[in-house]
Design a protein around this nucleic acid. Structure first.
Lengths: 149, 149
DNA sequence: TTAAATAGGACTAAAATAGTACTCATTGAA
DNA sequence: TTCAATGAGTACTATTTTAGTCCTATTTAA
């Protein structure tokens, strides 16, 4: 199904909430209450996002989390990367170590092509795009020729 | 990691072999020998591909499998779809039933946008592209601006 | 010093995936 | 007409991945 993990989905929910008041510091507990995601899970996600420098954290009492930069500069790719590791469709794309497909691996280079295209797509969409309230019509148009493929 | 399942990867290995002699009928056992993938697994994959009309099967002695159409007309999207079901990044994209993110679901519509873009990408690449022996240089170029995002 | 936070890691449970096995249906050829 | 080769369909088991929780340490404001 080529799907994102639940945690990545949660991450966007959390981030979109944080976009709304970017200047405020948000504690994990507060975010948990607002989003309805269990607090330990929220913490786990926030920690991963800090590690990937999508968020900045402030420790100690009255501490919390902040966006590390403007929403326009946080790509969907970086969020997915933070939660799930490198974006790679196949094992071979991620690393060539212990690649056992002796006879099949000729084709593997080709996944790189698809992988790169998807990566470009994910890097072209930012958090700011994700929270826009209205869809831009042109974005969802599909070339009619696709329907006959 | 946004990855494809192993079976999908195997499927492309199998299909790329079949592209090489498209007119020949290939038995599951033969394919297993050539690719090194265990025979029951090969059968499982072939059955799924037939069900999705990517392959055509001929039953009985001297039976086997054939590509259902020219490699140019078999998209990567259709292969992924055959192996993993509908391409949808989030549960919500796949179906809106039992969507529990009451407060978070405003953002969910936005995944549709990303999802559609990825779908377009996967539909623009065919099996024929996957087996091309040489990389087209322009395909792997990245706009330099990406590096500073 | 204490309370409220984050950091980091370990652990458990649940879900998805991979892989196997078994039985039935079809077909070509002896 | 029977047998052997082959695909169809389904159910099951094992493995791996993911989700979710918990515990302990560290930091900092009051």
């Amino acid at each position: 199904m080529l799907k994102l993990s639940k945690l990545t989905d949660y991450a966007t929910v959390i981030l979109s909430y944080m976009v709304k008041d970017q200047t405020d510091l948000h504690a994990a507990q507060e975010i948990s209450k607002v989003t309805g995601i269990a607090q330990p899970t929220v913490s786990k996600i926030l920690k991963l996002l800090v590690k990937a420098r999508v968020l900045t954290s402030i420790r100690g009492a009255k501490g919390g989390y902040l966006l590390a930069r403007a929403p326009e500069r946080i790509t969907v790719a970086s969020v997915i990367n933070a939660m799930e590791g490198p974006i790679a469709l196949t094992e071979c794309s991620a690393s060539h170590k212990d690649c056992g497909h002796t006879s099949g691996c000729e084709i593997q280079g080709r996944w790189e092509l698809v992988n790169q295209k998807i990566l470009n797509t994910l890097e072209s969409v930012t958090l700011a795009d994700m929270v826009l309230p209205v869809k831009q019509p042109e974005e969802v148009l599909i070339p009619i020729s696709r329907l006959y493929k």
